[in-house]
């Protein structure tokens, strides 16, 4: 039997086995379950990136909420940002009035 030929075959098996073993050991062999949802969210944001309100949706996370003590109203950052932007005075209205 050709020893060199045999060693090459064994080497092939060993390389393949080692790579498979690594993939199974690291990361459990599969990406994180939430990766799909993250991907589709990010793709949706990028798909809408040409529309300017998307900028606000991207910058201001919806989960950060502002509550008012004693009042049962809580605005999300996203809603506040949109309301702020749609004010007749515009985005810089409040700042310019404070400067005077």
């Amino acid at each position: 039997m050709n020893l060199r030929g045999k060693s090459v075959t064994l080497l092939d098996h060993a390389i393949r086995h080692s790579l498979l073993r690594r993939v199974e050991r690291l990361g459990g062999g599969a990406p994180r379950p939430e990766a799909r949802r993250r991907l589709l969210q990010e793709a949706a944001v990028r798909a809408n990136s040409h529309r300017w309100p998307a900028l606000f949706l991207d910058i201001y996370p919806a989960r950060g909420a502002v509550g008012f003590a004693g009042v049962e109203i809580a605005f999300g950052w996203r809603e506040l940002a949109l309301v702020h932007a749609f004010r007749p005075a515009g985005v810089f209205g409040p700042f310019s009035s404070q400067m005077r």
Partner: peptide, 22 residues
């Protein structure tokens, strides 16, 4: 994962690859 040996990096590459596809 086989190239980078890092599951976090592999996750990022996975996401970026499909974002590029999109």
């Amino acid at each position: 994962l086989a190239i980078t040996r890092d599951p976090d990096v592999a996750d990022d590459i996975l996401q970026e690859a499909f974002l590029r596809l999109h």
